[in-house]
């Protein structure tokens, strides 16, 4: 398995009164060919920001302070927009958290889908139409002919998310980033969309970075997983390893709160307290104020992400 994407020591943040305020701290991970990697963590821990950093889609007030994102022979954080545009949508694509607002309300589905083909290939109008119809059937949209002419407001949330997936997969990308693709949807629709992503991932042999609140989803879809807390990776490893024996108190807390598919972390909160504010990070371990195992050292010295094996890493002074 070759490495397809390598995120290396990425620190991302914003600037307030000339002072740098970090949001992501030293995030590093790899995505191999054909692999699905899950990123989990509570709301606000920096999952979306990690994805947007890779895509070069950070908002204007947020910037990459240090680190690199390497894809093939390119370093994405330094790539000019015109070159990035040759990759985005073609080799690396993304599905967003908010299906209701992620499509342009003023253009038809057909128009928005055709754009992807227009900018990443040399197809005639007829070929584009043909391809659009094909990809819509692949994501199991009924009456694709009619849907091409439809406007986003005429489709349900689940349908729109299928359209988003169709757009993301249109050019058979090497990497697809799915940022909580099902969070905003009904439970029944969630399962359908997940099945679809799994099926398509296998069919297209796409590597997937799967961001979610839902540990059950990770267990079902991912090979490896990354647990984030307050802008840091606190544990990583294969899904089997971590589910078998979570070593970080936070991960173990998550497992207790969400043992089954469909039960998101947000809803079942057994870990007391909240994620610390970016302005007010604890000096030692960022989890210390909430950690049942915390000792003096935890409050004084920040733990480092210790490599336990080829795949495993844990950031804790007192591993479980």
């Amino acid at each position: 398995m070759g490495v397809l994407l390598e995120v290396k020591n990425i620190s991302v943040g914003t600037r307030r009164n000339g002072e740098f305020i970090g949001i992501l701290e030293n995030v590093s991970f790899k995505l191999n060919k054909g692999e699905t990697v899950g990123i989990v963590g509570e709301s606000g821990c920096g999952k979306s920001m990690t994805a947007l950093t890779i895509m070069g889609l950070l908002s204007k007030n947020i910037f990459v302070e240090s680190g690199t994102v390497n894809y093939e022979d390119k370093e994405l954080t330094k790539l000019p927009t015109t070159e990035l545009n040759r990759l985005r949508g073609k080799e690396i694509s993304m599905i967003f958290q908010e299906p209701m607002t992620s499509l342009n309300p003023s253009f038809t589905i057909g128009n928005q889908l055709a754009e992807v083909y227009k900018h990443h290939g040399n197809f005639s109008a007829k070929e584009i139409r043909q391809k659009s119809l094909e990809i819509l059937s692949k994501v199991k949209i009924s009456d694709p002919e009619d849907k091409l002419k439809a406007y986003p407001h005429q489709l349900s949330g689940g349908m729109r998310q299928r359209v988003m997936i169709a757009m993301a997969l249109a050019c058979s990308p090497k990497i697809m980033i799915a940022d909580e693709p099902t969070t905003a949807l009904d439970v029944t629709v969630q399962a359908q969309i997940l099945d679809l992503i799994n099926e398509l991932q296998a069919g297209f042999n796409t590597s997937v970075l799967f961001i979610t609140h839902d540990l059950g989803v990770v267990a079902e879809t991912c090979h490896r997983m990354i647990v984030m807390y307050a802008g840091q990776i606190i544990e990583e490893g294969t899904v089997a390893e971590i589910f078998d024996h979570p070593s970080h108190p936070y991960t173990s807390g998550l497992m207790l709160s969400a043992p089954r598919l469909g039960s998101a972390i947000k809803r079942l909160k057994t870990i007391k307290g909240v994620v610390p504010d970016i302005d007010n990070m604890p000096t030692g371990c960022r989890f210390a104020p909430r950690c049942p195992y915390a000792t003096d050292i935890c409050f004084e010295k920040a733990p480092f992400l210790e490599k336990m094996s080829e795949t495993r890493g844990v950031r804790c002074w007192h591993k479980l």
Binding site: M55, L57, L84, N85, R86, L87, R88, G89, K90, S93, M94, F96, E98, T101, S102, L103, N104, P105, E115, V116, H119, H120, M164, M167
Partner: peptide, 10 residues
């Protein structure tokens, strides 16, 4: 949001 989608499409 939809502008971010457009940009993500390259």
């Amino acid at each position: 949001d939809y502008i971010r989608t457009v940009r993500a499409k390259g």
